[in-house]
Write a protein that binds this DNA or RNA. Structure first.
Lengths: 226, 226, 226, 226
DNA sequence: AATGAATGAGGATTCATTCAT
DNA sequence: TATGAATGAATCCTCATTCAT
């Protein structure tokens, strides 16, 4: 979607441009981001932006898509298909949190697509963004069911839906001011939001998912477990 | 925070203004909302807006706070403190969904506070918004634990955190284009998002919460525990 | 020129209004003075201003004229026609300085008539303002000449012109920020502008005028003076 | 202080802009000057003004400073340091009058700095404006004293102060409506203000200065004093 | 291909004045 | 007569985009 010119410039320049764009859009939001400021931060002439992209919108879309790509690579990279559902889920949550901490801009961009006035972007991005994770989660859950690791009566789609829901809320709590404040209010954290608190919360969320997915304890042996 | 003049105008006019403001801000977002258009939609002169509010910001804040108030009344109204946790939770989810369906604007405003560039608003609104629900959920859960209706080993704060997280994601799915698309993707809904689908999802989310909170059930011996 | 209504209100109220108007117009200038703020400072409803005056312009003119009246009374009051030119001139300079110090607003209004964009006001005020002083000075100088106190070859009109010029510059130095800065630069005053410095300057200005008006020393006795 | 962009445009365009700005600001005053109108008069887009200057204020300051520069060059240009005080003073008065007649806008801008509400500009401009002339006048007078051309008992600072005062009033009479009216009133000029009248007045003002500065003249014994 | 000056629609806010109460 | 809410023209400034160099 960007012009071919974008491919012709030095990769370092392109990367600088795209990462500054991601940072700025994430920080200010789409409307409040100034193309002139973006150009100057990226060390590029204002006019050049329009040599690379048709418009601010196109640039924004491209940055979002690229962020999605990066996020995916970071989160799904190193994932071994041989692992069981639980292992894979935990991997995703932990890698996701790590990536979001080092690159908050991409999650902020994601959250922004649900903001008011961003519908045109949602139309173009949302399905593409969600499909991958939805398919992945559903597949893992189905496998889990098949392997007897997951309750057989689970509604796989719904489970994927709320597992991802928890993921979103959790990640949002790491980057969005609002969700940070919310987290602190719920968890009654007074001082700084330290990594330990986050980690505990992460662990507990994963445990929650486990406890819901796990097949009901075998009927005859209800006693004596744990 | 609004000027006193706001209190002196005819309630019908004020209500019209505030509801149009909520609608417009929710639809377009803060930055993209034009005060002139708002004025004309509200049937008021542009200058009059500034007789009522110091600035666009103040108006926005007021509309958000008012939306919060309305939402609370709608959601918590009719709630009987004698009900048990599960009943109360279900009431809130169902009333919440109903209110959000009839007044999507207020949830959209809520979602917007977490958007990029809205940090100044988050600082002023978020705690105020979240505290009420957080306190309510924690109190109900604690009661539930005391009554033996909820697992004794539950971390109440964390539980409140993710219950509300599910609530947010669910409600967002009713109003935000992005979350609608996401819902349809996860639940594989092809046609229109009908009320039945929503209701099923609601029911299943409530069931999920039940299943997590419920004490591990020693089937034969429900009596006599604790 | 103001509406009759102005005469019907309580004198205290009217005085308050006019003095606040003078202060505000003097401080901010015509354009930057806000009728609403003026009303509120004067303890009067905004609408009432328009019951008393047709327009901001009319109010401004009235305030200027009233200031002129007050200034005159203050400056020319207590002046004894029996005094000689020099005595009368000194009286005027000293009374002028005293009045300007206690009511800077009126001199500021005067200075403002010469500002850009104030031509419509100049057309209506300037002659009226200047005529009185011009006539007075010329008459005194002519008398002085007739009495042999003033050089017979004096061009009375020109002398009146520059005597008043010195008066204006001097008084301006007491109230206008620009002329204050100028005074301090010329007189090399570092600290605060104290009353003594002002008084010295006043005395020296009067001496200057004396020295110019005084008839040339009698030819035969050039030696031995001073 | 202006943006670098200003230096990069065609000089003709820049000159046109600055001279139109000077004219308009001088005519209307700071507050009443409309940036849009200025732009259109200068044959420039509104937005371009903001490519050259941060704000209306900055533009105004720049125009004033530039006017000061031009005035100085016009007035002090062609002045021979070998001339005596009187010659130099006369040069300055005559050149000043000529410049003010051909470029009234700059003197109007100067006068405006002393208007109400212009204090922020006075703080930034006044000392800079006055220092040069003050220093010049004092230096010339001191030289005059040293050369025996000026009364030894002269208070140089005060003399410089009122000589410049007369200069200001005189020049103001050429450009400000108010001071024009005042001049006509004092000098009883009925018809148009012709150049002859101005010139006479100029000559007489210079004569006045001479008469005050000149050492008391012991006619027979000019030699041998001090 | 890169640059950055030029453009002008757009948008928040102010304020003199009007007018219904 | 007093009031102050209502009005909308006016004004500063921003910013995406274009285009000449």
């Amino acid at each position: 979607m960007p012009k071919e010119t974008l491919q012709k410039i030095k990769p370092a320049k392109r990367d600088k441009l795209l990462s500054e764009a991601a940072r700025l859009f994430a920080q200010r939001g789409y409307a409040a981001t100034d193309m002139a400021e973006l150009a100057s931060r990226a060390g590029v002439a204002k006019g050049s932006l329009y040599n690379y992209f048709e418009s601010k919108q196109e640039l924004y879309l491209y940055v979002c898509r690229q962020g999605l790509e990066l996020s995916r690579r970071a989160v799904y990279g190193g994932l071994d298909p041989a692992w069981d559902v639980y292992h894979q889920l935990e991997h995703i949550f932990r890698r996701g949190a790590a990536f979001v901490r080092s690159h908050p801009e991409y999650l902020l961009l994601y959250l922004n697509v649900s903001a008011a006035g961003m519908e045109p972007f949602a139309e173009k991005l949302s399905r593409q963004v969600e499909k991958h994770t939805a398919d992945f989660l559903k597949a893992r859950l189905a496998e889990g069911v098949a392997q007897g690791l997951v309750r057989a009566d689970l509604n796989v789609n719904q489970a994927a839906f709320w597992i991802n829901g928890l993921y979103i809320i959790f990640m949002a709590s790491l980057v969005s001011r609002h969700f940070q404040i919310r987290l602190r209010e719920y968890l009654e954290i007074k001082g700084r939001l330290n990594m330990r608190a986050i980690d505990e919360q992460l662990t507990s969320t994963i445990a929650l998912i486990h406890s819901v997915l796990r097949p009901a304890a075998p009927a005859p042996a209800r006693r004596g477990r744990r």
